[in-house]
Design a protein around this nucleic acid. Structure first.
Length: 110
DNA sequence: AACCTGACTTCGG
DNA sequence: TCCGAAGCCAGGT
């Protein structure tokens, strides 16, 4: 199969994240083929987030927290996530064990 | 081709 | 657990 550009893979993966679930920068990068390319995912969100209508708010960091700073998008992202049913604990963290999304093929037997 | 970006992740204290 | 420093990557200039 032809190897797609990383960016293309990332965009497709982001489109698969269902409402009410989240993924991580590193997780998306890993699914796209390079677990080290988390930062590239950030670039994709900046470069194509809006034009590709990507659910940028469903991408958080591996600590289960939002990477955006208060006053710089944090509230907007949190609002969007809570609107989908995502719950934040007292420390502003999300329980990834509950809402971390992964492609269906990750659950198949093989 | 060198240099820069960026909402990360990992490591050590 | 929290913080700073270093490492990492691919696309854009």
């Amino acid at each position: 199969m032809p190897k797609q550009a990383f960016t293309e893979e990332v965009i497709e993966l982001l489109r698969e994240i269902p409402r009410g679930m989240v993924s991580t920068y590193g997780g998306i990068a890993a699914l796209a083929g390079n677990p080290r390319a988390a930062r590239q995912v950030v670039r994709v969100l900046h470069a194509y987030g809006e034009k590709e209508k990507l659910p940028w708010w469903r991408v958080i960091n591996k600590q289960g927290a939002l990477s955006l700073a208060p006053g710089n998008g944090y509230e907007e992202q949190r609002d969007l996530l809570e609107a989908e049913g995502i719950v934040f604990d007292a420390n502003g963290r999300i329980d990834l064990d509950r809402v971390l999304w992964q492609p269906d093929w990750m659950n198949e037997d093989g």
